[in-house]
Design a binder for these strands. Structure first.
Length: 885
DNA sequence: TGACTCACG
DNA sequence: ACGTACGTGAGTCAA
């Protein structure tokens, strides 16, 4: 700690910098926070680096300062503070209050003057100062005891100015800054200076004469050219200097000693950050606090209210049996597990309510690994979890199911999952971790490790369940939660555990074949390039194509030449190396991601891949899949499509059944928009793209060419994505004007769709969010961005999310019902994958009639829309050779 | 870790 | 004069 260092920040200057440096940031409720975030981030960073003993932040106050009295035009052309920034100042001051950092303001003075006054006083007491600002004017305050950190492009990069550095950079001493400004002026502050005198002349003059006053008193010595420039503007120059001079004697009552910094009020800070949804900052603070607590013999941070709960560590058989009793009496338990999928369950904590007891909520800890009673603890846990008469509340129930899986244990009656509930309340949140939810909703910091941490988690799950259940009710998402998302947790767990069988021999064969092809392509590419290089490196490839071979540059990326497929396709005819690179890329992708990547994830025990489905990741309500991602297995190009041959049924005599919704998103659109033309097309069972082509091109359905249909298909896609002429033009390779025409004639023929789009955006602006058919919600803070392109992005999202999200609602509802009926009927067919509009099953051939009927019935009737939902089914010995049935 | 590229719906 | 299609995850390079 630098006990005798004073850190002073220019609040106004830094807030402005942060506002312009941080692209856009807002809470889920639309509160704009970019400047607060940027400012806070920077503040925490400098404090951490500099460890100052004294801290203050200065702000401007009052529109009129003493400088305006000296010169009415001072800062006359300064643009008004943006509307998005102004309300962020009080928030910044709240952050400072929570940080225990004094805010200094004085009527009629600018932040600079307060800073000047503070550092002058500090110097008087031999205290070193560091000024952080984005304003060059402060450089005049640099001295042997005072340094300035100036923000450089953005806000987090700071450049340190000592006396030496000021001289190097500007060729003047810090004290000469006002003189310099007096000559050169400053357009941003509307300080006039002397017309015709630029930085170079000013520097030379100051080097020779030292000060502006000296220059003026000896103006006759100057060469005629300069003399005539300066003489008529003597008064203006002196006034300019006066305006640029920082006042160091502001009548501040505060003493430098009073700025001694006691450190932050962590509780207040965390509560504020959770209100502002600064997740990363919260995590950083929690981590820092964790470190402090771990320091042996160090001082635990007492002012932080880490959440502590009383709990009982159960060991004896009797006590454990008693827990089952208590759980039954309670009727519901919140359970937190610790451990990993590799190593198993290490411990569990159970929270339950004992009527009449005080406190009502009791928490129990069970060590499942301890030699004494570990086995018994696990059995007791298993009994409680399996008992359908006891409601289970968990955070991330699917992970818990996986942890229990190896012990042959499961959960019956999963009554609440806080992770999934929080996701519905704000699907765009960066994290749904329990610690973050506890902070956001319960305003407590969960402890990091140990028995008390697990106990606190169980307790928090109980409290969050009650809180989030009420929030779901208020948001009218109870049906979506209890009928779809919550039961889906178990469905997804079953799908993951079943896994997908893989033909490993076939996969290895493909790997060898690809290896040979890739090596041969690489050889040919090196030949044509005249050297060996890494074809995978876009930088090296760019060098070869655009520098060595001098091919025309079509497109640039932020950092260099673009070499993506669209560029290479355009260059295909220009040099024989280009098509080879395209083919190399394609095969390389297949080998590394799909062939070798997939092989690496085959579980040696089951011979299958067990993907993870993520239920709380996407902003729209879709699922995602990882490790491996089985939702992006190639299909569009034949070479890649062959990968699907390795996805096989898990048992002899089984088949792969696929069932996909036909045009589900356009059907959802037809239903939501109630457009007569679109409704009619689907009710008649027409080919939707052909019909659209006929409408847009004004021909009869029989006259539609392949090309017309292709364009119409792109228009239909575009509508769903929130269309733009630019995007459409790029996609189908026509002029922007032509794309514009297609869109116009589309909207002329489908006026209901146009009205739907306008209505959706309007409602989104009014409410701040959009909803799906089952009332799934997505907040759209982008709609309120001051940045036009961000705002338009928000508008496209407003269109796409209800459509994409409603399709997700529908297929999830179908999945829950299909899973339930397969189970009820005791069928051996297993649902193994979901790919957004498609379900894939591993099915005994003998169950075909029953299962196809069941699947179709649930998928087509998941929701009743104004148009029929149509499902296409395919059957085969693997995922490649499936034939329509 | 971010940028780039590319696979899917 | 901008800068754009919506939603994901994985592999690779290069700092």
């Amino acid at each position: 700690m630098q006990e005798n260092t004073l850190l002073v920040l220019d609040g106004n200057s830094l807030a402005h910098r942060a506002f312009h440096a941080i692209p856009h940031l807002a809470t889920s409720q639309g509160l704009v926070t970019n400047a607060v975030y940027g400012f806070t981030n920077m503040l925490l960073k400098v404090i951490k680096e500099l460890q100052p003993g004294l801290v203050a932040v200065c702000f401007d106050m009052g529109r009129v300062t003493f400088r305006h009295e000296q010169y009415g035009e001072y800062k006359a052309h300064r643009p008004a503070t943006p509307d998005e920034l102004r309300p962020q100042f009080p928030l910044i001051k709240e952050v400072l209050a929570a940080m225990n950092i004094p805010v200094l303001e004085c009527e009629g003075y600018e932040a600079d003057d307060l800073i000047g006054t503070l550092v002058s006083r500090a110097e008087g007491e031999k205290i070193a100062s560091i000024i952080v600002t984005g304003d060059q004017d402060s450089l005049q305050l640099v001295s042997p005891l005072t340094r300035v950190l100036l923000t450089r492009k953005g806000i987090s990069e700071l450049e340190e100015y000592t006396e030496g550095r000021v001289w190097e950079r500007f060729g003047i001493t810090p004290a000469q800054f006002p003189d310099y400004k007096g000559l050169v002026g400053d357009t941003s502050d509307n300080i006039p200076g002397v017309p015709g005198i630029g930085p170079k002349t000013a520097r030379t003059l100051l080097k020779e004469y030292g000060s502006l006053e000296e220059i003026i008193s000896r103006v006759d010595e100057l060469p005629a050219r300069l003399r005539d420039k300066i003489r008529p503007y003597r008064e203006q120059a002196l006034l300019s200097k006066q305006l640029a001079t920082i006042e160091r004697k502001v009548p501040l009552e505060i003493d430098v000693g009073a700025l001694r910094w006691p450190g932050p009020d962590y509780n207040r800070l965390l509560a504020l950050f959770s209100r502002l949804e600064f997740k990363t900052l919260i995590r950083a603070i929690r981590q820092e606090l964790g470190q402090h607590e771990d320091e042996a013999g160090g001082h635990p941070v007492r002012e932080v209210e880490t959440y502590r709960v009383n709990f009982r560590h159960l060991t004896g058989k009797e006590e454990l049996c008693r827990l089952v009793e208590l759980s039954r009496q309670s009727g519901r338990v919140a359970v937190a597990l610790s451990g990993t999928r590799r190593e198993g369950i290490a411990a569990a904590a159970v929270a339950l309510k004992s009527p009449g007891e005080s406190p009502e909520l009791s928490v129990f800890y069970l060590g499942t690994e301890s030699p004494a009673g570990g086995q018994a603890a696990l059995e007791i846990l298993g009994d409680i979890l399996a008992d359908p008469g006891i409601e289970k509340l968990l955070h991330d129930g699917k992970s818990a199911l996986w942890l229990l899986h190896r012990y042959g244990l499961t959960i019956n009656n999963l009554a609440f999952d806080t992770m999934v509930a929080a996701y519905l309340l704000n699907p765009a949140a960066a994290s749904q971790e329990l610690a973050d939810l506890a902070l956001e909703h319960l305003k407590v910091v969960l402890p990091g490790r140990g028995e008390e941490a697990l106990a606190a988690r169980a307790d928090a799950i109980w409290r969050l369940s009650e809180l989030l259940a009420e929030k779901l009710r208020l948001a009218e998402m109870e049906r979506l939660y209890y009928e779809v998302e919550l039961p889906l947790v178990t469905v997804l767990a079953d799908m993951e555990m079943t896994g997908v069988a893989i033909n490993r021999q076939h996969l290895e064969e493909m790997s060898r074949e690809l290896e040979v092809k890739i090596a041969s392509l690489a050889e040919q590419i090196y030949q044509l390039a005249g050297e060996q290089f890494n074809i995978n490196s876009t930088r090296q490839l760019g060098h070869i194509l655009f520098e060595k071979l001098e091919l025309p540059v079509i497109k640039k990326t932020k950092t260099s030449y673009s070499t993506d497929a669209s560029v290479l396709e355009e260059l295909s005819g220009a040099h024989p190396i280009v098509p080879l690179v395209l083919e190399y890329r394609q095969l390389m992708k297949l080998k590394s991601t799909y062939v070798d990547g997939l092989a690496a994830l085959i579980n040696p025990e089951t011979g299958r891949v067990h993907t993870t489905f993520h239920q709380t990741v996407t902003a729209t309500g879709r699922l995602s899949s990882s490790d491996p991602n089985l939702q992006n297995i190639p299909i569009r190009l034949e070479e890649g499509r062959k990968i699907r041959k390795v996805f096989i049924p898990g048992r002899e005599g089984n088949l792969i059944l696929t069932a996909d919704y036909s045009q589900i998103e356009l059907r959802v659109l037809a239903h939501m928009a109630k457009d007569p033309n679109l409704l009619d097309a689907f009710r008649r069972g027409e080919d939707i793209h052909t019909r659209t082509a006929a409408e847009v091109f004004g021909v009869s359905v029989t006259e539609v060419t392949t090309d017309m249909r292709g364009r119409a298909k792109a228009v239909n896609f575009g509508i769903v994505y929130g269309i733009s002429d630019f995007g459409l033009a790029r996609d189908i390779n026509v002029s922007r004007q032509e794309a514009r025409q297609y869109i116009e004639s589309y909207f002329a023929r489908y006026a209901g769709v146009k009205a739907f789009i306008e209505r959706t955006i309007r409602e989104a602006r009014e409410k701040g969010y959009v909803t799906t058919l089952l009332n799934r919600r997505r907040y759209l803070p982008d709609l309120f961005s001051p940045n036009r392109s961000v705002r338009m992005f928000g508008e496209r999202t407003a269109i796409n999310t209800p459509i994409q999200g409603s399709a997700a609602d529908i297929i999830k509802l179908a999945m829950v019902r299909i899973h339930r009926e397969l189970k009820e009927r005791g069928l051996a067919t297993r649902m193994i994958l979901q790919v957004h509009d498609e379900l894939i099953f591993d099915m005994p051939a003998g169950e075909m009639a029953e299962v196809t009927e069941l699947v179709r019935r649930h998928m087509e009737n998941a929701l009743v829309l104004d148009v029929p939902l149509v499902v296409d089914m395919k059957l085969g010995p693997n995922w490649y050779e499936v034939k329509k049935i």
